[in-house]
């Protein structure tokens, strides 16, 4: 750590930021490149400048945290949202319990409710097919039963769509709150 040079410092930072798209990564790295440059002009050695900057892993963490939350804000999809959750969770055990726990729990409930919705639709179709095949119900009964099942499923789907959107919005709010907490409390 004490003999860290500009080159190894920049290399490490770059490799830690590998997942960030190139233009943004370049922009971030430029700040540190310039920093070394100006530190040198002010008569600091590379080692001194690197020590003063601090652990590249901490810096990468701070950069990635704000980046991932910002990304989830702009693109409201599951992949980005999960990545933001994991970025936040990566910051500590506290968050593992308070973000990841509820997130997985609620996501599980939503998932199973979507399952119910699909099952209802399937039951509607299956009733009609079964009645045609085995004559369990008369055609009239089967069709009306099928329609009831499918309508119920559609109603449920509409409700579920709203719930899922709310879930995304709430997760995002929670993450933003969490990020503020971490920024305040993080080392």
């Amino acid at each position: 750590m004490s003999s860290i040079t500009r080159e190894s410092y920049m290399k490490e930072l770059e490799s830690l930021l590998q997942k960030v798209p190139e233009p943004l990564r370049k922009e971030w790295l430029y700040d540190y490149y310039i920093h070394f440059q100006q530190a040198y002009e002010n008569g600091q050695t590379e080692q001194e400048a690197a020590a003063e900057l601090g652990d590249p892993r901490l810096i990468a963490n701070e950069l990635l945290l704000s980046y991932r939350v910002a990304q989830a804000e702009s693109k409201n999809n599951v992949g980005n949202l999960s990545r933001a959750v994991f970025a936040t969770a990566g910051m500590g055990l506290f968050n593992l319990i308070f973000v990841l726990g509820p997130y997985i729990g609620i996501a599980g409930v939503l998932f199973s409710l979507w399952g119910t919705t699909a099952a209802l639709a399937l039951a509607g179709v299956a009733t009609v097919i079964d009645s045609l095949w085995n004559g369990t119900f008369s055609i009239g009964q089967a069709v009306s039963l099928g329609i009831i099942c499918i309508s119920l499923s559609m109603l449920l789907a509409i409700g579920m769509l709203k719930l899922t959107r709310m879930f995304f919005a709430a997760t995002l709010k929670y993450l933003q709150f969490n990020t503020r907490v971490i920024r305040g409390a993080g080392k």
Binding site: H35, E52, D55, I59, E62, S66, A70
Partner: peptide, 15 residues
């Protein structure tokens, strides 16, 4: 202060 953490802060405030 860890000088390196000024830059992430500047990025965030810009964002």
């Amino acid at each position: 202060v860890a000088v390196g953490s000024v830059y992430p802060l500047l990025n965030r405030l810009t964002q």
